[in-house]
């Protein structure tokens, strides 16, 4: 055997890495980068605070959402830090409780969209052919419609349907906003993931799996999915910010949550007529929406930058 060949290329650092350590290290590195930057760090802190409020909201809130025991239109002060609205409801409590509802609606909607969209995108991207062609065209066509328009129409129709209370249709109708969020974002997520899949698919390790005779499911989930995850995370954070935006807009337009639920968008709409006398009733929920979306957007931007830098 050739002499020169025997020398093994040994790296100076022969650190041992195990899959678990590897992902922990990667996550730590990711968080360090995220919080290391002023903008994305700030955004992440904002989002985390709101998340905390969403969990603790029911405990913090001094009043129930529809407790009308106080005097109407009280200015912010002791007992009512954000004042009260025209019906004498505590604005602070309603904003706190609204946090939870927006996280549940926008968050769950996004989650469904991301999971379904990723599944569709991975499948058609890997499969290719006629099926991919047809679904992709349909997605393009669907995306020509503004999301808000679809949401309004669907919700408008669903609102007028009568279902037997407790039936599965009624349950679906109750979570209609959440489902609509999922519906309008599945195609976008699918398109993004499809294009990442197309790129990963051409890499040689996928071909290596193919010539080992691996099944489609194995290749999609074991070989391709991990490489698509970064793109998926970026997309999910972006979708989440749009979803919050959309839920708030729908609430404001009266197509989302119905009174008297403590929905931020709905509160802005209810209180905009009394702005002259009670600006706080409008300002606090509006500020909450703006702050949360800014926070999510800053975080999402940061995630995108980190992922892109990694290449």
């Amino acid at each position: 055997m050739a002499q020169a060949e025997q020398i093994t290329e040994t790296e100076a650092s022969s650190r041992k890495s195990k899959p678990l350590n590897h992902s922990i290290a990667a996550t730590t590195e990711f968080l360090r980068l995220l919080f290391g930057q002023l903008q994305s760090g700030l955004g992440a802190v904002i989002v985390l605070l709101f998340l905390l409020l969403a969990v603790l909201g029911p405990i913090i809130a001094p009043y129930a959402a529809n407790d009308q025991s106080a005097l109407p239109l009280l200015a912010p002060g002791a007992g009512h830090p954000f004042g009260t609205d025209a019906l004498g409801r505590d604005v602070f409590s309603r904003v706190m409780l609204g946090t939870q509802s927006i996280f549940v609606t926008a968050g769950t909607g996004t989650l469904i969209a991301v999971v379904l969209g990723a599944a569709v995108g991975l499948f058609i991207g890997y499969q290719g052919g006629l099926l991919d062609e047809v679904i992709s065209r349909a997605i393009d066509a669907f995306l020509a419609l503004p999301a808000l328009l679809i949401a309004l129409v669907v919700l408008g129709v669903v609102k007028n349907l009568d279902f037997v209370a407790g039936s599965w249709q009624a349950l679906l109708a109750d979570s209609s906003v959440l489902l609509v969020i999922a519906l309008v974002y599945v195609p976008i997520v699918a398109r993004v993931i499809r294009s990442s899949t197309l790129e990963v698919k051409t890499r040689e390790f996928v071909q290596a799996a193919q010539i080992r005779g691996e099944s489609r499911v194995y290749i999609i989930f074991r070989e391709i999915l991990p490489s698509v995850v970064p793109a998926l995370v970026v997309e999910a954070s972006l979708r989440f910010s749009y979803a919050i935006f959309l839920v708030a807009s729908l609430g404001f337009l009266g197509a989302g949550a119905r009174p008297p639920s403590p929905d931020w968008g709905l509160m802005v709409n209810e209180n905009r007529r009394i702005y002259q006398v009670a600006p706080w009733a409008l300002a606090y929920p509006a500020a909450a929406i703006a702050l949360l979306v800014v926070g999510v957007n800053l975080t999402s931007d940061g995630i995108k930058r980190i992922v892109q830098k990694r290449g």
Partner: peptide, 13 residues
């Protein structure tokens, strides 16, 4: 980024 984050009804109001 901030402006993009504000819903139209917030800026409008």
């Amino acid at each position: 980024l901030s402006v993009v984050s504000l819903p139209e009804f917030v800026t409008g109001l």
